[in-house]
Nucleic acid binder design. Structure first.
Length: 268
DNA sequence: ATGGTAGACTTTCTA
């Protein structure tokens, strides 16, 4: 079973890149974030042609928006709301026959100023992580399935997840309050990070490079903002991971690249 | 010392 996550930054504009990725890498399930696609306007026909006929969409007008597209039939889907908003930041699916529940999550970016007292977006981000922790803590013991929690978490939790730990300590996405909350969430909710298990620190790993760099590849000032976590009960089934860096060099790219996890089937 | 880019119900917002 191959599961991927990708912040696509407009699924309608980049549907050609999505199908290129699907045809090259053949994931069974692809989680998307920042689809920027209102409900009912998801580009389903191109995906159907590529063999992905099962779609769970939680779109939102203008920005945000998440979706899951699958080759495997979807038994049921669910949308979780956080911070009292329904702004397209989560959707999950239970896959037919596998007992797997796959989540596509889009954590608020948090604005520029890392101070919740003066920046409401940063306060929202911190509250979102707190609510995520309370909710995710119930997943492991709910008996509803084995969970894959993936998406754009907008936090690079480890020193080797950014191009310069020192220079990013006061930059939203790598401040101690954010990295502390995310590392605590993973540990206390019983989740495991197979990407880091396969590529331990101090290897640098990035999944995002700013559009604002003159030459993203030469500067290589990236951050690992996109993650695929699994619940501990299936951590031993993780086989392989990949970060598709080459996708950042495609024509009119997203600023994020796909992250891939291969996991053995875990039955019903 | 502070831009820089990209996308969307664009004249501004979010990232």
């Amino acid at each position: 079973m191959r599961i991927a996550t990708w912040n696509i930054n407009s699924v309608r504009l980049r549907i050609g890149l999505v199908t290129r990725f699907l045809e090259t890498w053949r994931p069974d399930v692809l989680c998307l974030q920042e689809t920027k696609c209102p409900p009912g306007q998801f580009p389903t026909s191109a995906l159907l042609q590529a063999g992905y006929g099962h779609i769970a969409d939680n779109g939102y007008t203008g920005h945000h928006g998440v979706a899951i597209i699958s080759r495997i039939p979807i038994a049921e889907s669910h949308v979780q709301s956080f911070c009292g908003r329904n702004d397209g930041r989560h959707v999950s699916v239970r896959l037919d026959g596998s007992g797997l529940v796959v989540h596509s999550l889009y954590v608020p970016a948090g604005g520029d100023e890392p101070d919740p007292a003066t920046n409401g977006k940063f306060a929202h981000k911190l509250q979102f992580i707190d609510e995520l922790k309370a909710w995710a803590g119930g997943l492991g013991c709910s008996g509803t399935g084995h969970h894959v929690l993936s998406g754009d978490f907008n936090i690079a939790p480890l020193e080797s997840d950014v191009w310069s730990h020192k220079q990013l300590l006061k930059v939203v996405s790598h401040t101690p309050v954010e990295t502390g909350k995310l590392n605590d969430l993973m540990a206390s909710c019983g989740f495991h990070d197979p990407v880091r298990a396969h590529h331990p620190e101090p290897e640098k790993l990035y999944s995002w490079w700013s559009y604002r760099a003159r030459d993203w590849e030469a500067a290589d000032r990236g951050r690992r903002l996109d993650h695929i976590w699994v619940s501990q009960d299936i951590s031993h089934l993780c086989r392989n991971v990949a970060i598709v860096r080459e996708a950042r060099g495609w024509s009119r790219p997203s600023d994020h690249v796909p992250v891939i996890l291969d996991i053995d089937e875990c039955g019903g």
